[in-house]
């Protein structure tokens, strides 16, 4: 698969997480991404969608929210865009654990921000935009010549 555009809508519910990951896995695999890259994208999609479902839509009082996943593969760059109409929230501005905190014994660890940190670490690039009333969380990875 040299070039492709795909898009699918999911109900903003935790039950959608697995089908969302399956969709991204399938398209990633068709684009020739390796296992680690696919896992990383699934992790980013899962973590950020969880936040959108549990906090974004809930705090805006929307009960029938939708998350759209758009996939674009061109020039060896595989891009996954999560689109939602929940409360504007830029995860890249959220506080995540720093080096010192990650080194703390598990007994003393606080868990906040871990998901966002994991999402950032799992993809080559993570961007956020707020456009036309929509949150766009954009993850990209470069397909390697395998």
């Amino acid at each position: 698969m040299k070039k492709a555009t795909e898009s699918r809508n999911f109900i903003a519910s935790l039950d959608s997480l697995e089908p969302m990951r399956d969709f991204v896995s399938q398209k990633g695999s068709e684009a020739g991404l390796n296992k680690k890259q696919i896992y990383g994208l699934c992790l980013a999609v899962d973590e950020i969608s969880t936040n959108i479902i549990l906090y974004g839509y809930q705090s805006s009082g929307i009960t029938d929210g939708v998350i759209s996943i758009k996939i674009n593969f061109e020039n060896d760059i595989f891009v996954v865009i999560l689109e939602d109409k929940a409360t504007p929230f830029n995860p890249l501005e959220a506080r995540t654990p720093d080096e010192n905190e990650l080194g703390l014994p598990l007994e003393e660890r606080k868990i906040g921000g871990l998901g966002i940190m994991m999402a950032k670490e799992s993809v080559d690039e993570f961007r956020y935009e707020f456009k036309d009333g929509k949150n766009l969380n954009i993850f990209s990875v470069k397909a390697l010549d395998n």
């Binding site: 990951r21 992790l43 899962d46 969880t50 871990l114 994991m118």
Partner: peptide, 11 residues
């Protein structure tokens, strides 16, 4: 697959 929610259970 394990997300941060899963890690929280391990913790």
């Amino acid at each position: 697959f394990i997300s941060s929610a899963g890690l929280r259970v391990l913790l």
